[in-house]
Design a binder for these strands. Structure first.
Lengths: 151, 151
DNA sequence: GCTTGATCTAGATCGCAGTCTAGGTTCTAG
DNA sequence: CTAGAACCTAGACTGCGATCTAGATCAAGC
């Protein structure tokens, strides 16, 4: 029972999972323990993460859920600074929902724009792929290949 | 006629545009002159860019076309290192088309995967936006908002 | 000829988002 | 009691992709 991380054995909350260690949260979210500490320094959590008597972080399921959303926002290109702003809004409680909405809408807009840009690039790239496929298949220099000329 | 950069006045190739200055290429491609020099150091061009007697770079239309493709590849997330590899393949002339094709196919695959990831994130984010819109409209706490709890 | 703007090289610096290190401390199984 | 895994803090370092600086040169219009 060495590599069992923070699971307090025979603690009766083996199932209830009252608190999670940083390692468990890392496993659950895919973030590294380094990243989790970094996120905390950057104030990306919705609350100060509480500690055990020994000084270790004790996360709740809600923190993991929040991190899952953070992961989505990050994966869709939201910079840390903006995520931080969002976290700050949520942290300061009700009353700023319109602001949060605006932030999310703006991000949604950005993501859609990014997807469109990728679609446009994809079209070009796919065109190149087709040209090269044809070239490789038939030997016809339909794309452009001369080292000096271009492409 | 001060800000006319590299256009050689009355040189008869006002229209033919035999050679472009770095500034003109910057304007044409959206890359900064710094970036263009950086690209050259990184060997991303298909040829050594020739110089005037005075040591200034003289680009050809083909270079601009190549940069346009580079921009597309970069915009779709291709790292400089991979672009460099591609440039190297093209530079070394015919005979490696299959390798170029493989590189482009792999990139196409990566771009499609990235788009799918963004689509997935977008769905989540849009869901949040809808929840917040409803909340702001109706005051119903349908999303999750408590500062301590989560979200 | 002189001023002004564009360009040159080499190298330093930047922002982002972590990642890693050093030097400890805490826990838990055996 | 002890080994070893997991954890702690503060701060240094990394990789990428530029971007900027310094100090000089070149080119064009007046």
């Amino acid at each position: 029972m060495k590599g069992m991380k923070g699971a307090r054995v025979g603690n009766a909350d083996d199932d209830k999972h009252a608190g999670l260690s940083i390692g468990e949260v890392a496993d659950a979210t895919g973030l590294s323990v380094h990243a989790l500490r970094f996120f905390e320094r950057e104030e990306l959590f919705l609350r100060p993460i509480p500690r055990t008597g020994g000084g270790r972080r004790v996360y709740a399921a809600a923190d993991v859920e929040w991190l899952a959303l953070c992961n989505r926002l990050r994966a869709s290109g939201m910079p840390i600074a903006e995520l931080k702003r969002f976290a700050g809004l949520v942290r300061s409680g009700p009353g700023n929902e319109a602001e949060r909405l605006a932030l999310l809408q703006e991000h949604e807009r950005a993501v859609r724009a990014r997807i469109e840009e990728l679609d446009a690039s994809l079209e070009i790239i796919h065109g190149k792929v087709l040209a090269y496929e044809k070239h490789v298949r038939e030997g016809t220099a339909a794309g452009v290949w001369a080292p000096t000329a271009s492409r």
